[in-house]
Measured scan of single mutants.
Amino acid sequence: MQNSHSGVNQLGGVFVNGRPLPDSTRQKIVELAHSGARPCDISRILQVSNGCVSKILGRYYETGSIRPRAIGGSKPRVATPEVVSKIAQYKRECPSIFAWEIRDRLLSEGVCTNDNIPSVSSINRVLRNLASEKQQMGADGMYDKLRMLNGQTGSWGTRPGWYPGTSVPGQPTQDGCQQQEGGGENTNSISSNGEDSDEAQMRLQLKRKLQRNRTSFTQEQIEALEKEFERTHYPDVFARERLAAKIDLPEARIQVWFSNRRAKWRREEKLRNQRRQASNTPSHIPISSSFSTSVYQPIPQPTTPVSSFTSGSMLGRTDTALTNTYSALPPMPSFTMANNLPMQPPVPSQTSSYSCMLPTSPSVNGRSYDTYTPPHMQTHMNSQPMGTSGTTSTGLISPGVSVPVQVPGSEPDMSQYWPRLQ
């Protein structure tokens, strides 16, 4: 039975679970980093996980050691009161100082060594604690504590007292930064006198190289990059290397530039699409467009005044059976039934097929058609009795279509119309 579990990581490298990497692998990681390889490249070359490479390099940059820390136990506290007071002093002298600059000053002034120097995250935590204590304490208590930490007896009751030896409130920041720059020169002199001055200088240079600022491109470089971006948004590694040799930039910087440029292009394309949609959409909808001609068919113009009344309900007709019959029939052209047409008796099958359309009241044959006459024609229609054979009435077949029909004066039988409509 094995005491430890061995495995293979996602890159194909072998590791022992819970145990640190061998010293030979750690040394190779540092050597590759000094030669300029990126952590992701080191991870692929040595088949070590990216997190492990970053952790080893980060500890090497901070402490200069590649040895693993002790497994188990607690780390001794490195942010001692003396170190905290120095950090507060540096922050007062130059409020814009960075944590890694404070760390360098602690090393250069001999406050800490490589073994007990606090990390950048520890210094940031100390600065946050100082800021929170400043908010919790009152103004007087804060000034007393700062005077105690600074070891001075001057008056701290006013704002300019934060910067000793100065009279203009805006000047101390520059003086403090100048003092810090002077301390940086002392850093070089002190570290050069040490035993491991060369190694420390190499480590600091490598650290500065990794902690780079934003790349500033010249106009020629920007023009070359934009020209390549117009050709393709995704250049391959050969195109990037050719462009890197042409404009004297690292291939990694060119790759990052193209990634950022593609993101910018997507944002601009989104804005262009929004403007295009806004320009195509009308600002207001016309009133006429809300009524579609496919839904509402136009009603033909009436030929006679009587045809303006298109349904039985508008003429005072309360018989719903006839109203439904007229509205359900398709529109037909106007025609006239003459008196000489043969009077065919209704076929029983045809009569039964339209039995649902006729009223059940037996008085329908005896009703006159003056009910369908509009009010303004009552006088004219009353002067001509319906009993004469020459009287013409208008029957409504569908809305908007008038059918003048000659009705025999002897017997106005409704059943004569249905064979004609089939």
Rank of each mutant, 00 (worst) to 15 (best):
G141E: 13
E101Y: 15
D140P: 13
G7V: 14
E109M: 07
A88M: 08
S4L: 11
M137Y: 09
D144Q: 11
T80C: 07
I45N: 11
R19N: 04
A88G: 15
G73E: 01
G138E: 15
F15A: 03
H34V: 14
Y61Q: 10
S6K: 07
R67T: 12
V14Y: 08
T25M: 11
G58M: 14
L149S: 06
S85Y: 13
G73K: 00
T113M: 14
D23Q: 07
E93Q: 11
L146I: 09
E109D: 12
A99W: 03
K55L: 01
E133C: 14
V8W: 04
V30Y: 03
T80V: 13
S54H: 08
W100D: 03
I102K: 03
P118I: 15
V16T: 15
V83A: 15
S6P: 13
S49F: 04
R59D: 00
Q89E: 10
P118A: 14
E62V: 14
S35P: 02
Q89T: 14
D41R: 14
C112I: 11
V78T: 04
S96Y: 15
I117R: 06
W100T: 06
I45M: 10
N124T: 05
H34K: 12
M142I: 12
C52K: 01
T63E: 15
A33C: 06
I123G: 01
Q2I: 07
R92E: 11
K145M: 09
P20Q: 02
P22I: 05
M142A: 10
P20W: 02
S74D: 01
S85M: 14
M148F: 07
L149G: 12
C52L: 02
G64C: 04
E62Y: 05
E133W: 13
W100V: 06
I29S: 02
L106Q: 01
E62K: 10
G18V: 02
N150M: 14
I71R: 05
G110V: 13
W100N: 06
A33E: 04
Q27A: 10
K145G: 10
V30W: 04
G36H: 06
H34A: 15
R69K: 07
E109R: 09
P95E: 12
N129H: 15
P76E: 02
R77F: 02
I117Q: 06
I71W: 04
R69G: 13
N116T: 14
I45Y: 13
S132E: 07
R59H: 13
D115M: 14
L130K: 07
S132R: 08
Y143L: 13
F98V: 15
R26N: 01
R38C: 01
L106S: 01
I56M: 04
T25S: 11
S43Y: 01
R44V: 08
R26G: 00
G12D: 03
G72F: 01
R69A: 10
A37G: 04
I87Y: 01
N124M: 00
H34R: 13
A37P: 03
K75W: 04
P118V: 07
L11A: 05
Q2L: 10
P68F: 00
C40Q: 14
R38D: 01
I117M: 14
S122T: 00
P68A: 13
P81E: 15
P22Q: 15
